[in-house]
Write a protein that binds this DNA or RNA. Structure first.
Lengths: 209, 209
DNA sequence: GAAGATTACGAGTGATTGCTCGTGTTTTTC
DNA sequence: GAAAAACACGAGCAATCACTCGTAATCTTC
């Protein structure tokens, strides 16, 4: 139906334009976090960025393109956080507790630092384009967790490991949403509970049939 | 600002009207589940119910009233499911595994049976009226979980128990969303993983400092 | 069986939203 | 320094949505 092709004339951005784009994305993150995706209007995003609606559309073809660009930003940073967290972790060398510790902290930190992230990914009707953008990250993350589980519990077969990895990811998602919406003073102890839950689950996975 | 008073003239519904209201709610649940709350238009709900937009507004004052009524329905049934699940459970008499078993199964069943539920409660900008409707159920559920945790782990103080109960609820929420969106054949084993996670968490809560 | 209430219709209204367009300013390119 | 490109504006358009209203059919009550 519509044109899904690349922009036929990629315009050469000036330094000013690049700055504006970053400002717009920051403004969009703020408005998305405050109102959610649907209720966030492009005019409000423009106002938050201190520019006119017309200017906004010189940099992004539509509202979804803004969300998509924001997602790309998040993906880069989240990917870095995950990679940094999970790559250093050596299941053999570290204890289970420390392993979970190093994996959970950066993820919690990222979610606290980027409230717009939740607003985009918690929405019930995620458009396929955004879902597709998230997929590689999810896959990579799941694969890494799966691999760690494989080292922890070698007697589990592939199917079981895949299920366990998925379960881990969703446990984190569920408790993260609790942590981010909780009183700041409650966040450290709740993060501790998340770690306890993951440790308990993984131990059970190693020990029990 | 607006009138928050009761309907000044509570009209006497005919049997036909009661039937229509149920039909409208069923149609709304379908459309909410399919499109999410924001994207679900009142005209689409009316069409799904096989009536005109005008007729819809003879039974519900606005779109949110439909959601509210649907939530009330869900609350009744969910409350029944939870009560049935948790009231029978006697932590002293039953083992931990059976306890978790009886608590989890009906909750999973409810979420599978009512796809509209997620669409209403997963949305990022839940209006206060809907949140208020959900609050009593959440409080009751949390209190019951807290009580069970108290019996399992008497050495924990109130603050710790409250945190643990919250964590349990959010673990369930996170993995439930995985279960409902998974392939039907994967649902039973994933439900097993949820139970394993809860057991692992609760055991760790009982055993470790 | 008539009066009054309820149910039903569906084109239409006012408000809102994503987005455009004509116009003017600033920066780059030659 | 002039032409071209990028940036900026903001009033307003077309489309959409929640909701209304005038009218008519159906049911209840007496």
């Amino acid at each position: 139906m519509a044109e899904t092709t690349e922009d036929p004339r990629p315009r050469r951005r000036q330094a000013r334009g690049e700055r504006r784009m970053a400002e717009i994305l920051a403004a969009a993150a703020t408005v998305f976090a405050r109102l959610g995706y649907e209720a966030a209007t492009t005019n409000k995003i423009a106002a938050e960025a201190g520019i006119s609606p017309g200017s906004l559309y010189q940099f992004f073809t539509n509202k979804e393109a803004i969300a998509r660009a924001l997602v790309q930003d998040y993906l880069l940073e989240l990917g870095r956080a995950h990679r940094g967290a999970l790559d250093l972790a050596d299941p053999a060398g570290l204890g289970l507790v420390e392993l979970v510790d190093r994996a959970v902290d950066p993820i919690v930190a990222f979610n606290l630092a980027h409230p717009g992230f939740k607003a985009l990914f918690a929405r019930p009707d995620m458009p396929p384009e955004l879902a597709a953008a998230l997929a590689p990250l999810q896959t990579a993350l799941r694969a890494r967790v799966e691999q760690i589980i494989g080292e922890l519990a070698p007697h589990r077969d592939g199917t079981e490991r895949a299920r366990a990895a998925l379960t881990c990811v969703h446990i984190v998602q569920g408790v993260i949403s609790l942590i981010t919406s909780a009183d700041p003073a409650e966040r450290p102890p709740l993060t501790g509970e998340l770690k306890r839950a993951l440790c308990g689950y993984l131990e059970s996975l190693v020990a029990r049939p």
